[in-house]
Nucleic acid binder design. Structure first.
Length: 654
RNA sequence: GCCGGUGUAGCUCAGCAGGCAGAGCAGCCGUCUUGUAAACGGCAGGCCAGCGGUUCGAAUCCGCUCACCGGCUCCA
């Protein structure tokens, strides 16, 4: 039975925590339950419960627990920053995935040494065990108490003007304004306070592990029209071990960075002389790319696509018609003037494909017409956003435009989605999630058509069995779309494919087909890119495999390593046999020792190393070494060749 | 585009209270002829990102430009 004055924490102390361990005594810093969910709302453990309240524990290691921990750590950081930089004004400080940040308005930006000092100060605050104490305030009280915090004033103002829902923040979300005081656990003296909806950890001692990660500029309230504040990112975890494994994941991601691997494996580069965001592929990267394209072409051919080619530049008129010059001019390279006309590098292939469609009259019998091209496009990405192969200024889309009748739309989308996922699977990706983006507030076209298109996309998703979420109002202004995301080998999410149903462009270009009844009809058009861009997909695969491509994609599939120079001719014969089977093979005849050659091949992540010494030569055999360090000795040459050829043919990872 | 950081040999980095440009790896040439992640020796390699300034003197200090890195905004 609940008594008056009972807190959520007291109620919960009779329950074991989620990990099954004994309940933590009040004030314990070692994790377990750190907050409560009362009637579905997250509350502090000090929350006063009432009769009949449903009280559930929130473990620090849960998603909610992480958010509370990180938000509280953000407060500790802000206190530390204001201790060291009294002129710092507070922005916002929410928890985010894997961490938190807090924005500050400071006279001069933070440097690396500042970060160390802040972290040092934070450790003192954590050690002190300051209590987080909640207090409801009126708007006027909040304004008075936070008179020196202009950004908080603005947030209170937002809250005051209230009714504009949806923009709940960690500062002023919920029904009332609250301030959290940081109090000395012994004397109750006030160290610091912040406008905040909470909930928080009981005290700063409940922060088991944290680390400040990086700094950067960030626009106030996310708009580049506003003042830029200085943001500090940090992370916090329920244990040192959990934090270490997170940091290890980051280190692994860095080792896999495609820009690093691209240089190490001699795959591609970005020559300064060419310009930012414009990659060149070296021979080894070129092989991978060619294999990717060849495979994609073959699959498209089998799926009934027709191949087209279009130029890289065009007169302005084309993009005026398509609407790009109206909407996306900023992202296009500026025009060049030739013969009195403006020419643009193309940022998209679709208008050219539409022109191919329009080059003659079309019959319903030709539909669906599936045009495919590896089409290179150029987009003027802003200087600060260019990022390796994943955000380039020149890149090649595996772009297709499908023209179909309204009646064909649903079937076409369903088979298309199947095709997309099937092809991605062949490249070794296994986890997919989709997103259906529906009609935005600002849209063009007929709502009935939108509904029909959205229903068709949804139907396709349901039929595909892919897990998906609906992103309400996130569609492009001219069309709803499906985005397919993948998870890579270390769980990171990448957006890849996109499918859009477009009713706009067919109208802009006035394309038609003649229906069975002799009438002229407007076709639907589906845009889709599957890799997105070859460069980007290349980069994602490179990171997914950490450079250790499966044999069918590996630029060098086999390296022959002689035990001594005398064995080079023998291995060269084996290599010739492999080459006859279309295998990319090299024999390392450099002056290095065998061990060094193994090291070299290993670092180049070559799938198969074939060694041969006197024993192998005598037996007509070779010895395998695999990338994982395993070996298989004395394998007859025929058998070795079969093993390699099979792995390549069946696209097996080894 | 905005905020901050960085730019020295192909790569990773040292040198920077202003005074002759360094190492390891990679490369090339030798010697060694080796059984599963680095043999040994030698040679070569640089307009210290570019341009301008301060100075008797600049890789080092200052300014601008370019590029890259981390954020923000953006990603049709």
């Amino acid at each position: 039975m609940t008594e008056a004055g009972t807190t959520a924490g007291e109620i919960l102390s009779i329950f074991p925590n989620e990990s099954g361990a004994a309940p933590q005594p009040s004030g314990s810093p070692s994790g377990g339950v750190i907050a409560a969910r009362v009637n579905g709302e997250l509350r502090d453990l000090s929350y006063q419960v009432r009769d009949g309240d449903a009280v559930e524990p929130v473990d620090i290691a849960s998603d909610d627990g992480h958010a509370i921990l990180r938000h509280s750590t953000a407060h500790v950081m802000a206190q530390a920053v204001q201790g060291l930089f009294p002129h710092a004004k507070l922005g916002i400080g929410p928890p985010i995935e894997n961490g938190f940040y807090y924005d500050f308005d400071v006279p001069s930006p933070f440097g690396p040494d500042d970060l160390k000092a802040v972290e040092q100060r934070m450790r003192q605050i954590v050690k002190q065990g300051q209590l987080f104490s909640r207090r409801v305030v009126s708007e006027d009280e909040a304004r008075a108490e936070l008179a020196s915090e202009p950004y908080k004033q603005e947030l209170i103002g937002l809250k005051g003007s209230g009714a504009s829902s949806g923009e709940e923040s960690v500062e002023v979300g919920g029904a009332e304004l609250t301030i959290y005081d940081n109090l000395d656990p012994g004397t109750g003296a006030l160290y610091w306070k912040d406008l905040c909806r909470g909930p928080h950890l009981p005290s700063t001692r409940y922060i088991p592990a944290f680390k400040l990660m990086r700094t950067g500029g960030a626009y106030w309230r996310g708009s580049e029209k506003n003042q830029q504040l200085q943001r500090i990112y940090g992370t916090a975890w329920e244990s040192r071990a959990a934090q270490d494994s997170y940091l290890e994941l980051l280190a692994e991601a860095e080792r896999r960075d495609h820009r690093r691997l691209g240089a190490e494996l001699d795959l591609f580069s970005f020559p300064n002389e060419i310009g930012s965001g414009l990659p060149v592929f070296h021979p080894k990267g070129g092989v991978i790319r060619r294999v990717m394209e060849d495979y994609s072409r073959r699959r498209h051919e089998e799926a009934g696509y027709e191949f087209v080619n279009t130029p890289h530049a065009t007169k302005a008129e084309l993009f005026e018609t398509s609407g790009h010059l109206g909407f996306y001019k900023e992202s296009m390279f500026p025009p060049m003037e030739l013969d009195g006309a403006d020419y643009y590098l193309k940022p998209m292939n679709c208008p050219m494909h539409v022109l191919i469609y329009r080059s003659r009259g079309r019959s319903y019998r030709e539909l669906p017409l599936r045009l495919f091209e590896f089409g290179t496009v150029y987009r003027y990405e802003k200087s600060g956003v260019v990022h390796g192969l994943t955000r380039a200024r020149g890149f090649t889309q595996d772009d297709s435009h499908i023209f179909c009748t309204p009646g064909q739309l649903a079937g076409e989308l369903a088979s298309l989605l199947d095709f997309v996922v099937g092809l991605l699977r062949d490249f070794g990706l296994t986890e997919f999630e989709a997103e259906l983006s529906t009609r935005p507030e600002k849209y063009v076209g007929n709502p009935d058509e939108w509904d029909a298109a959205e229903a068709a996309l949804k139907h396709a998703l349901d039929a595909s069995g892919l897990p998906y979420v609906i992103a309400e109002g996130e569609g492009a202004f001219y069309a709803p779309k499906i985005d397919v995301h993948v998870r890579d080998a270390i769980g990171r999410r990448w957006q890849l494919s996109t499918l859009q149903v477009d009713f706009q462009e067919p109208g802009r270009f006035g394309i038609e087909y003649q229906a069975a009844d002799g009438s002229r009809q407007r076709p639907y058009m589906i845009h889709r890119a599957l890799f997105g861009s070859i460069e980007r997909f290349f980069g994602i695969l490179l990171e997914h495999y950490a450079g250790a491509f499966p044999p069918w994609l590996a630029p060098v599939q086999v390296v022959g390593i002689p035990i001594a120079d005398a064995h080079v001719p023998y291995l060269s014969k084996v290599a010739a046999l492999l080459r006859e089977q279309g295998i990319r093979v090299e024999v390392d005849d450099a002056g290095d020792r065998m061990q060094k050659k193994i090291r070299t091949a290993q670092r180049q992540k070559v799938p198969f190393m074939l060694l041969a010494g006197d024993t192998d030569v005598a037996a007509g055999a070779v010895s395998f070494r695999y990338r994982d360090g395993g070996q298989r000795n004395g394998v007859p040459v025929d058998e070795a060749i079969a093993e390699i050829v099979t792995a390549v043919r069946d696209r097996i990872q080894v």
